[in-house]
Design a protein around this nucleic acid. Sequence first.
DNA 1: TCGGCTATTTTTAGCGA
DNA 2: CTCGCTAAAAATAGCCG
Lengths: 228, 228
Amino acid sequence: MRMVRQKTQIRKIENLAARQVTFSKRRRGLFKKAQELSTLCDVDVALIVFSATGKLFHYSSSSINQVLERRGLLQSKNGEEPQQTSQEMQAELKRSAILSKELAEKSSELRQMKGEDLQGLNLKDLNKLEGIIESGLAAVVKTKGERMWEEISTLKKKEAQLLEENARLKQQLLIMDTGVGETDTQDHRSHHHSLTLTISNLSSRDPSHSNNFSNSDTCLKLGLPFSN
Amino acid sequence: MRMVRQKTQIRKIENLAARQVTFSKRRRGLFKKAQELSTLCDVDVALIVFSATGKLFHYSSSSINQVLERRGLLQSKNGEEPQQTSQEMQAELKRSAILSKELAEKSSELRQMKGEDLQGLNLKDLNKLEGIIESGLAAVVKTKGERMWEEISTLKKKEAQLLEENARLKQQLLIMDTGVGETDTQDHRSHHHSLTLTISNLSSRDPSHSNNFSNSDTCLKLGLPFSN
DNA sequence: TCGGCTATTTTTAGCGA
DNA sequence: CTCGCTAAAAATAGCCG
């Protein structure tokens, strides 16, 4: 028998049993890899998986767990299932604490980059902060410039195309005029109508570069709250 | 040459460059697998990775609120065993998730203010970002200027005090000279010694305004990695 | 649901650019 | 840091208890 295993498409497995088996296997693989990444690269990793039945599986690297034993000293004295629940709870508490800390740090740094809460900084700190912001600004200005050039280039191309088209249309109309003998006003109306369309196109085209906040990725990058 | 690749031990990679490369590669692999698990098995997955430099990488298969709603709505329906997740646990999970989300947002915003991860932004976004950074920079520069004026003012005051004191000391020495009849050279040596002290004081005084990076708070505010 | 077993696919370490 | 490459290592789909 050939046993030709298909290259698996990444889409929902319809067969329930197969899906569950795959979930079990891949979940283990994922947790293993998370753990390996944490160990090999000495970084903190947190992974949470909710199964379809609502069961929770999570992993967080030991360094996250080891920090903040203050809150971690929770007491689960019910002898029924002390081990499992306690550990999960402990992990969650620690994760919360760590995240709070990280969040406080990021928020503080962010405020300072926006020019708030500067009282606590000395001259040296301020100088360093200034440098960081300046380089950030430079990068943003650079990217913006590039983006504008792209936009200008695109628009010029479109303008040229439309001008060409307009010229062609005008020519056609002139030919029809000479052939059929229509009025001058009719001719000018059509011509102006074409131009109006052109301008409208130039100012509001190219959806890829305008406000499309449809994907959460963009929202996230701007630090806006998720839309859903 | 065989280039026989060793079976890699799972422990911290000591070589920095190799560790960073591995981090980059395995992180991508991990996120890909998390994504695949989510799609294939139709489950919710949240994955958070903090790099050694404090950079955050985050993935969640759907909005965290949805995950939590589902989780919160799920009660024990299987008769075999009551749901282990307590109210307390659910509250912690929710807190963790919310914090994760906020942290991801802050981190992203921060990186963009530093000029990183700008590829997802359109012109309008970039313009807005530029404005925010500019105002932040202005505030920092202003505060820095004020701080410098304070510093200058303080130093000038001290200089005046010390000059006055030196003049007084010089006067005293002159009086003593006339009274006891010491040599001129001795007089000048003392005088010069006083001046030297003065200059030295002016340049390296006031510990509160110079390089004291001893507390983690300062590092934190500047977004430096923790020392531990 | 789980473990074990291949054949096959996927990941990735090491290296260079 | 990233990307590409290659061969080795690891993960896993499908199947059988």
